[in-house]
Structures are given as C-alpha cells and as structure tokens.
Nucleic acid binder design. Sequence first.
DNA 1: GCATGTACTAACTTTTAGAAAGTACCAACT
DNA 2: AGTTGGTACTTTCTAAAAGTTAGTACATGC
Lengths: 132, 132
Amino acid sequence: MDGQQGDAEHEALVADVFSAACASRAVLDHVTGRWGVLALAALNDGVFRFNALRRRVQGVSEKMLAQTLQALERDGFVHRDARPTIPPHVEYSLTPAGREVARRLLALIEVLEAGVPEVMAAQARYDEAKGA
Amino acid sequence: MDGQQGDAEHEALVADVFSAACASRAVLDHVTGRWGVLALAALNDGVFRFNALRRRVQGVSEKMLAQTLQALERDGFVHRDARPTIPPHVEYSLTPAGREVARRLLALIEVLEAGVPEVMAAQARYDEAKGA
DNA sequence: GCATGTACTAACTTTTAGAAAGTACCAACT
DNA sequence: AGTTGGTACTTTCTAAAAGTTAGTACATGC
C-alpha cells in the first residue's frame, strides 16, 4: 500500500502515457511541449495568423512555431486555413478536439500563474537551505 | 472581433505565461516538461522511491529523473524525504500545491489518452493529404 | 568475498532547439 | 524603376539540452 493505490483508474485505459512506446506519449509531448502549450492556449482566444501568433507567444522562433503548428495540425488539434493569395494569408484556429485540450491546459495555466508567488517563496527557501 | 475576445480573463492576472521573461514561464516549463508531467502524474498515485518512480515513468534516464525531481522540489510541488540510512532511502511525494497541479495534469492526460484513436485517424488523413 | 541494490553525480555523445539568413511574390513608396 | 516592407515559411549553422555510460559509497544476501 505504499506504492500505487489508484490502479483501478488505469486498467480501463487502452492508452497509457507511462509506457514509453505508447502513441499517447508522442501526443502528450506535442501538447505539453514548451511551445505546444502556449500555442494552444493562445489559439483558445480566437483565430490567429502566423505572425500574430508569434507576437502573442513571446520568445518563440519562426522555426519552432511552424514546427509546433504542423505537429498540432497533424494531430487534429489545430485547423490551418490557407488562402492561396499573394502575399500568403494563413489563419490558425482550434478544432473541437483542440478546444477540449486547450480548456484543460488553461485550467492548469491558471493555477500555475496564481501559484507563482508561492513558487518563488519555495525556491527562495530551497536555495537558502542548499546554499547554507 | 477576429483576434482575442477573452481578455477579461487575462487582465486580472499578475503572472502571464505569454511574456517570455515571466517567472510563470519557467514554472510552466518544469511542470509541462517531458518528464515533469509524467513525474507529477505518477506521484499523484502515492509515495514513490527514486527507482520505483523510474520504473513507473518508463523511458526516463536517471539523470533526467533526478534533475526533474530537483526542479519540482525547488518549485514546491514535490516533497523529498531522505532518511540518512545506508543504503539511502528517499521517498518522493506531492505537496498540497503539487497535488493541485497534478489534478489538472491528470484531467489533461485523460482527454489525451481517450483521444488517441481520433489523433491517429487525423494523422493518417494529414499524411495522406501531404503524401499525395 | 563478490554480485546486487540504493540514490545519485560526472563526463561524454547525440539529439534538439534557437538564431540568422534565404525564398517567392506583390504592393507601395521614392 | 528600384528599394523597402510584408507575408509565411524553409534552410543552414551553432548553442543548449537530453540521453548514455560509468563511477561513488556503502550494506545485505549468497
């Protein structure tokens, strides 16, 4: 009883993130990857064009944003609407599945943002204990 | 009205993950990092020793697990209880803050695991459209 | 008395992320 | 008429992160 007591919740699942080879692991990596989280969170606020999204998600490079969006589009979380005009006009938005995921992500982000002061305090305590 | 419509939810927040320099960005990286997610999710099921956790989170290296746990402990999400015995006996568990975060993480993981078949289908569609 | 297990750390290699420049095309300004 | 700027990327190169392997300091079981 000192290890896992919540196995009842796991045995019903076909997909298991804890096994390295499972497809869900790759999906989790895309969604919770450094830029995946922020792209999905940003897109939850509406439809964005590539460079608008890049301005919103501060610090992301063009390469990583393109790569991230491609992975999320392939997974079916993001919809890419490209008008074949010149100059190119591309609009990114969430699919229903993407919206579902983004909701959970935002719930997480909210508790993390609210908890920042506590985290900073914990870090100070940790560093002091180590440094002393 | 084609951009952000949800600003009312943002303006009340002191911390903002979308700004690159914000401390919340670092916390988000620890929590949603490849191994951070899995470590927190695993620890939600109970108390684990280092190698037990390593067996649970398949694919993680000793180095990365140690590094991840240190970051999460510093942020105040994980509690490390080391008994000064030989051989060493160290128990890892979630703090109240960590439990709060793990709950949101598990909610996310559940929808992702449930959505794996849909994602696989979306990927197949995407690859066929590109390959053709 | 030698392998095994504990919880790591350190050195080294491979993979990935990031920075900068290139691409193709047109519109507007000079 | 030529330069600049803007769009959405891709490509190349380098810096940073992750992964691999070996080592530490003991103790217990065989």
